[in-house]
């Protein structure tokens, strides 16, 4: 089966963001950008499905700036077969992204789309579920295990109380949780090879879908600051302070 993997270019997870002083957003100038960590896991899972003989072709897709080609190339270097960039300099909301992905799904006809559960910039955790809704497909979110079982897909999901396993009719949407796998590093020869793999660049206008934002950001502010407190020397002092100063014991 063909697998589509959407990958988002986001701020690197090690960077501590700074809020702009005019509260219009966060400062992304000269900040390291990377593939969303959950999307690396999605790419890895697709590759494992291909290595296991379940997947036949892996298409990586990103909606973002010209530079998002870097993240698609990374997916290609890891083992995806080809890439699609839908170029835009605007921030497209999850609903808009899901509508664009739906259009691509209708063209490409994959049997499975694997997304990250959450983009670590907007922390929305929506796109996969929305795409499933728009396509009328089944969804297996927050996956920690994915297995083909005849014409079904068994997905083990991380839920609040532990783990839940469900069986999905195909075609299906899966979103990845952290423990699904550990993504591989691309080797140098594979990085070189990836440069020759096909990468189609499209414009949002090619799709005729409405991606106008529904949410308006009024302001972006600093979270309440927490000051470092005191260091205690001993366990006895700690217990004393918790009892008599903080009153929490």
């Amino acid at each position: 089966m063909k697998v589509l993997v959407p990958v988002k270019r986001v701020i690197d997870y090690n960077v501590k963001v700074r809020v702009k002083s005019d509260q219009s957003g966060v400062d992304l100038a000269n900040v390291k950008m990377s593939m969303n960590p959950f999307d690396e896991i999605a790419v890895e899972e697709a590759i494992r499905l291909k290595e296991g003989g379940t997947a036949t072709e892996i298409v990586a897709i990103s909606i973002g700036p010209e530079k998002a080609q870097d993240q698609i190339r990374q997916a290609l270097a890891m083992g995806a077969d080809r890439g699609i960039l839908i170029k835009t300099d605007d921030d497209i909301e999850p609903l808009g992204v899901a509508k664009l992905l739906k259009a691509v799904v209708e063209e490409e006809k994959p049997e499975l789309v694997i997304l990250g559960k959450q983009a670590i910039d907007d922390d929305s955790n929506q796109t996969g579920q929305m795409l499933a809704a728009l396509l009328g497909w089944s969804q297996g979110t927050f996956a920690s295990k994915v297995e083909k079982d005849g014409d079904k897909l068994n997905v083990t999901r991380e839920i609040d109380g532990g783990l839940q396993t469900i069986s999905l009719a195909l075609p299906a949407i899966v979103t990845t949780d952290l423990r699904l796998n550990e993504p591989r590093y691309a080797s140098l020869p594979n990085i070189m090879k990836a440069k020759k793999k096909p990468l189609d660049v499209k414009e949002i206008g090619d799709f005729g879908v409405d991606v106008a934002p529904r949410l308006e950001t009024i302001k972006v502010s600093e979270p309440p600051k927490r000051e470092a407190g005191v260091k205690v020397e001993t366990v006895a002092e700690l217990v004393d302070k918790l009892k008599n100063e903080a009153g929490v014991l």
Binding site: K16, V17, V19, V26, R214, L215, E216, T217, I218, K219, V220, S221, E222, P223
Partner: peptide, 8 residues
């Protein structure tokens, strides 16, 4: 690390 005020 940032708090967004959003209007729907």
């Amino acid at each position: 690390n940032a708090m967004a005020t959003v209007k729907s």
